[in-house]
Computed example of a mutant assay.
Amino acid sequence: MIVLITGASHTGKTVLAQKLLEKYKYPYLSIDHLKMGLIRSGRTDLTPLSEDSDLTEYLWPVVREMIKTAIENRQNLIVEGCYIPFDWEKDFEKAYLADIRYYCLVMSERYIQTHFSEIKKYASIIEDRLDDEYCTLDRVLEENARVLELAQKNNANYILIDDEYKVTINL
């Protein structure tokens, strides 16, 4: 089984992937790690500050083919990151889709307004964020509103974090 976890920055994608790894023993791929490996190795002119759409366009074809390979080899894999396009299903034949579960994490405006200090506090719980200056209340609100709109527009499976942060996925 392939588990795709996406959503806006700071929604807990990596934490959820880590919890699933611990519970189910499925390995996970952080698309951010792939991104940084390609950037640091000089394999791309993109930077960590490049537009998300440019990064998605560059990274998704590689990730997509890794997913197909894992399915063909009957391997489990969790893939997490914000570079999974909302129309990801178009890239897979029906036989592949049967083995893929997709989850998009979205925080409500109310949750963000009420819990922003916690969002900042837990930002580096799994990976150290060297520069988290861009994580402002306005930006988190804007990104989550955009992701929610796109998830709804694309009929994507999303988990809305509204009252408290309780995200669980049973495989």
Rank of each mutant, 00 (worst) to 15 (best):
residue 1 M to N: 15
residue 1 M to I: 12
residue 3 V to G: 07
residue 5 I to S: 09
residue 6 T to M: 15
residue 9 S to N: 11
residue 10 H to T: 09
residue 10 H to V: 11
residue 12 G to H: 01
residue 14 T to Y: 03
residue 15 V to C: 05
residue 18 Q to K: 10
residue 18 Q to C: 01
residue 25 K to G: 03
residue 26 Y to V: 03
residue 27 P to D: 03
residue 28 Y to N: 11
residue 30 S to A: 07
residue 32 D to Y: 06
residue 35 K to N: 09
residue 36 M to A: 13
residue 40 R to V: 11
residue 40 R to Y: 14
residue 41 S to P: 05
residue 48 P to W: 14
residue 51 E to H: 14
residue 52 D to K: 00
residue 54 D to Y: 02
residue 54 D to L: 01
residue 58 Y to V: 06
residue 61 P to H: 06
residue 63 V to K: 02
residue 63 V to L: 04
residue 63 V to R: 00
residue 63 V to C: 02
residue 71 I to Y: 13
residue 77 L to Y: 03
residue 78 I to S: 09
residue 82 C to K: 11
residue 82 C to R: 13
residue 84 I to K: 02
residue 85 P to S: 07
residue 86 F to C: 09
residue 86 F to R: 02
residue 86 F to Q: 12
residue 88 W to S: 10
residue 90 K to P: 00
residue 92 F to V: 13
residue 92 F to R: 05
residue 92 F to A: 10
residue 93 E to N: 03
residue 93 E to V: 02
residue 99 D to M: 08
residue 100 I to R: 04
residue 102 Y to W: 09
residue 104 C to I: 04
residue 110 R to Q: 14
residue 111 Y to P: 11
residue 112 I to L: 13
residue 113 Q to R: 12
residue 116 F to G: 15
residue 117 S to K: 15
residue 117 S to H: 12
residue 119 I to S: 00
residue 120 K to C: 12
residue 124 S to Q: 15
residue 125 I to S: 13
residue 125 I to D: 02
residue 129 R to V: 02
residue 133 E to D: 03
residue 134 Y to A: 03
residue 137 L to N: 12
residue 138 D to H: 03
residue 140 V to H: 13
residue 141 L to R: 04
residue 144 N to S: 04
residue 149 E to V: 11
residue 150 L to G: 14
residue 152 Q to K: 15
residue 157 N to P: 08
residue 159 I to T: 04
residue 161 I to S: 10
residue 163 D to I: 01
residue 163 D to C: 04
residue 165 Y to P: 01
